[in-house]
Design a protein around this nucleic acid. Sequence first.
DNA 1: TTTAGTAATGTTATAATGTTGCATTCGCTA
DNA 2: TAGCGAATGCAACATTATAACATTACTAAA
Lengths: 143, 143
Amino acid sequence: MTQNLTINSALTQAEKVCTRRGLSLTPMRRRVLELLLTAGAPVKAYDLLSSLKPGGGAQPPTVYRALDFLTAAGLAHKVEALNAYMACVRGDECGGAELYICEGCGAVTERHTSPVPTETPSGFQVDRSVIEHYGRCAQCAQS
Amino acid sequence: MTQNLTINSALTQAEKVCTRRGLSLTPMRRRVLELLLTAGAPVKAYDLLSSLKPGGGAQPPTVYRALDFLTAAGLAHKVEALNAYMACVRGDECGGAELYICEGCGAVTERHTSPVPTETPSGFQVDRSVIEHYGRCAQCAQS
DNA sequence: TTTAGTAATGTTATAATGTTGCATTCGCTA
DNA sequence: TAGCGAATGCAACATTATAACATTACTAAA
Ligand SMILES: [Zn+2]
Ligand SMILES: [Zn+2]
Ligand SMILES: [Zn+2]
Ligand SMILES: [Zn+2]
């Protein structure tokens, strides 16, 4: 229940973010975001697809388009080394994330980074950064 | 010629590294590494495959196995967000790389990072990190 | 020298991930 | 109401990666 509450509030927040920016969180996009929020962990595109099937057989482009929208809007992130997607813990103004991914239990901790990496090679201008740390969380490290 | 010299010396260095560690840089692995060094930029697995075809039709597992070996040995890196592979600029003891990838010209600058990221979330133990910065190099930024 | 064991590669097929191109729908506006 | 643009449906396809099993090559006992 607590979980549902946070998911609902995250969805409400996402609506607001989109409205403010002139984007539209359509039913399909909202549904995909809800699936990501419910999972609370990275999900593969084709797993999302399976979850969408029951209520109308969705095709790959459907889910990939929703994911493109969500990631572009900063509402979700792609975990590059896993080919998976997760809801952004922050509903708004996510300027770049640093992910700590536990290979024991699959839990992901997201930290928000300053968009400016310190000391770039001479003159390189960074648009976006992929920062993913793989290892073991405190609990899994004990085993 | 200068380029060939550096490639040859990199291959020689790679041999040494493998020998010292009890690994064997077989002809196939060496050939794939040579292709990566020659390209001097990230290369896709199936492009490597095409390059290998002429002298005997190689199949996907062949090149993926070689890439697995090279990346495990620290002689190459996978660029996760591009699904591509590149030779490590360092022939030895590469404890983790930070990549600056220009989306204008495709050039990649590799910086070697200290294996320990500062201030991890409580108790998280990092095994390996994926750090890729996308943007424009000094030259391409001017356009 | 045979025999067994291991690492590497070959071979075939298939799985997993992602995209293109075009048709359709829907809400808005001239 | 006719036209426009954004979003989705849909079919086919392209790309990336792996599974499973056979074969080879080299080594190390027996
Ligand atoms: Zn975020
Ligand atoms: Zn864990
Ligand atoms: Zn390196
Ligand atoms: Zn450039």
